[in-house]
Computed example of a mutant assay.
Amino acid sequence: MEWARSTSIGRATEVTLFTPITPGLVPGEGRTYEQRLASALESVQRRVLDHVPTPIGRMPTIHFARWLILRPAQYLQNSNVDPANPTLRSWLFFTSNFDGDVKDYLREFSVFLGDDVDRIWGNCEHWPEGGARSFETYWDYAKQHQIPTHAFYAAYPELTVGRIRQLQRFKRAFDAFVAQTRQPDGSTVPDVAGLLDAFLAENSVYPTDFPHEGGIYARAEGN
């Protein structure tokens, strides 16, 4: 079988997955798989909006990620097909932009986010019995449901997420340094050279906040 391929521009890569949601009720529960999936995604969204750390925030390669439940009434809008037809189904649409290779990216999902991935995709048909932590079956499942992207744009193709955060932090520190060099009347303070030396010493490396490739943001979960 010919699998869809991810598109890369510079160091940025995309992936899009389109998976059928399991129909019917969850065994032992009074809700459908779609309802359980919606609840799981709403929980993630609430945490993001409330600025509560989420497991996905620990991964330093993700530029963007989105999950959508596509229901017949949505994708058949303005069509001549009756969305109430019981043979129609809902789908989970996932798309993400990230740094590096798609297999490495999904392996990070398997290692760092396995339980969360199961809570989401476990509501979709034919989810592997071993879940996301059984990486090879998870990888096969993802590739079987990957769909091609016809156009992909990356605003900063040569900048990784880690590098963008470094530059963001550096800009804040540099603005603070410039403010230190000015007196209330706008003139230069004495010993600018000493302030510059201190600034360079404090901002030459970022050993804690910016993990090496394959690492995670430990602080995101308060660790």
Rank of each mutant, 00 (worst) to 15 (best):
D197C: 02
S187T: 13
S39Y: 10
P207V: 15
S187A: 12
Q74T: 14
E42W: 07
R133G: 02
P72N: 07
F174M: 14
V192T: 15
I120M: 01
L41T: 05
Y141W: 15
E158P: 03
E202C: 07
G24I: 13
L17G: 01
Q144S: 08
G10F: 12
D116F: 06
G131Q: 09
P27D: 05
P207G: 11
Y153N: 10
I216S: 05
S134H: 12
Y156R: 14
S90Y: 04
E42A: 15
R182W: 12
P148T: 09
V15W: 01
A38M: 07
E34A: 03
R169I: 03
M1S: 13
H126E: 04
D116N: 12
V81Q: 12
Y206F: 13
Y156P: 00
L17E: 05
L195S: 04
K171W: 04
R169P: 00
G131D: 08
D115I: 12
R11D: 09
P211R: 14
D99T: 15
L196D: 01
I62V: 15
T61A: 04
N223F: 12
L37E: 05
A198L: 07
I9T: 06
L68H: 00
R219M: 14
P207T: 13
L70K: 03
V52W: 01
T13Y: 01
E136W: 02
V102N: 09
E2F: 14
E29D: 13
S96K: 00
I9C: 03
A198N: 05
A201F: 13
A151K: 05
W127T: 02
Q166I: 09
D116V: 13
G122F: 06
L159H: 14
N80Y: 08
G30Q: 12
H63S: 10
L41E: 04
P211C: 10
T22M: 04
V102L: 07
A151I: 11
F109N: 05
W139D: 13
Y153E: 08
G57N: 11
S204W: 10
Y105D: 04
I62T: 15
A4W: 02
R219P: 07
R133Q: 11
P190E: 11
Y33I: 01
I9S: 08
A173L: 03
T87V: 06
G222Y: 10
Q180W: 14
A132E: 13
T87S: 11
G10N: 13
E129S: 08
T32A: 01
P184E: 06
Q45M: 12
A154V: 07
K171N: 08
F98V: 07
A84C: 05
D115F: 11
R46V: 01
E129N: 04
S96P: 01
I147W: 00
G122S: 02
V81E: 08
P60S: 03
V15E: 02
A65C: 02
A38D: 08
Y217P: 07
A40D: 03
F135M: 06
P128C: 02
F98G: 05
A201W: 13
A84H: 12
A198R: 15
G162N: 06
T13R: 03
A155T: 08
E108W: 00
F199V: 14
I216Y: 10
T54C: 11
S110E: 06
Y141S: 01
T22I: 03
L167N: 07
T54N: 11
Y138T: 01
D115N: 12
P72T: 03
I21Y: 02
G122V: 03
G214C: 06
Q144K: 11
E129R: 10
Q144T: 05
E34S: 03
